[in-house]
Design a protein around this nucleic acid. Sequence first.
DNA 1: ATGGCCCTTGAAGCGCGGTTCAAGTCAAGG
DNA 2: CCTTGACTTGAACCGCGCTTCAAGGGCCAT
Lengths: 153, 153
Amino acid sequence: MDRFPELTIGEVARRAGVATSSIRYYERIGLLPKPERAGGQRRYDAEVLGKLGFIGVAQSAGFKLREIKELIDGADGLGAPMRSLSSQKLGEVEALLERTKAMKGWLEVAQECGCATPAECALFPGPGAEQAGAEMLRVVQVAGKDCRRSPAG
Amino acid sequence: MDRFPELTIGEVARRAGVATSSIRYYERIGLLPKPERAGGQRRYDAEVLGKLGFIGVAQSAGFKLREIKELIDGADGLGAPMRSLSSQKLGEVEALLERTKAMKGWLEVAQECGCATPAECALFPGPGAEQAGAEMLRVVQVAGKDCRRSPAG
DNA sequence: ATGGCCCTTGAAGCGCGGTTCAAGTCAAGG
DNA sequence: CCTTGACTTGAACCGCGCTTCAAGGGCCAT
């Protein structure tokens, strides 16, 4: 159950799919705890693999390493601090989700785009598009697979 | 129809919600074209607002400015190059979408989390979680609103 | 003990996406 | 004329997330 630490940094790096330099960097900034050592060399137990995976997902969802650190540190006092941090982040992640969906829709329409010039293509925000983000959402929802702009609309 | 350029960089910045320094930076790297000038000062027409909005959305969906530039440049030759670029990016955006959804689910569970320690909480990858990303997806789908890990599972 | 391989450190460098700064220009208003 | 305010430039700087480098240490097999 309590497996003693046996992984070198190189093995951890291979198994987690990150660079050794990143692992040392994470340790420097306090994101990973300082592991035990054997003859000066770091020895990890398997637990660190889960942590690295978690870091990867959180990172890809737009969390900065500092925020991930807060998240992990805050976990020791699960509860209030954890909840406030996560509730704040939840809003950001939801916004990211919307924008990512919009971009996905845009790209899907772009796949089928047969327009000759940007001017006739609804994929590219025309003049007067104050909030192109909102326009992209609309365009993508309305356009279906046809991105042709109504000629003189 | 063809409104003449009348917006200063400051007005554009205010209306698009970006810094003037960013606009100049975008121009430096070729992301925005060099606008006309009046007495040395940049004068934009409203079209640039749409472009800036587009840049913002694309950026938030994980596109680098270089890629956005390719996307915009490629638009002049809509068609093949556009499609290959967008199809490549589509995969990345879909992956991002999945990870973001996973993170959102994680955060939602975290909101309700009543665990006292990370050890008993399914939100934190345990030892042996080789691929914590996959585990997060599973945890989030399975957990509902209860993140308590089965005691000796 | 020699070679090979993985590990160690601190410091420097890099790519990105900007911001900030100093010094100067321009047009309008009092 | 003089100030005010927004603009101009190039260069330097910044935070982030690393990577690379130089110089060296530990351990193992041959």
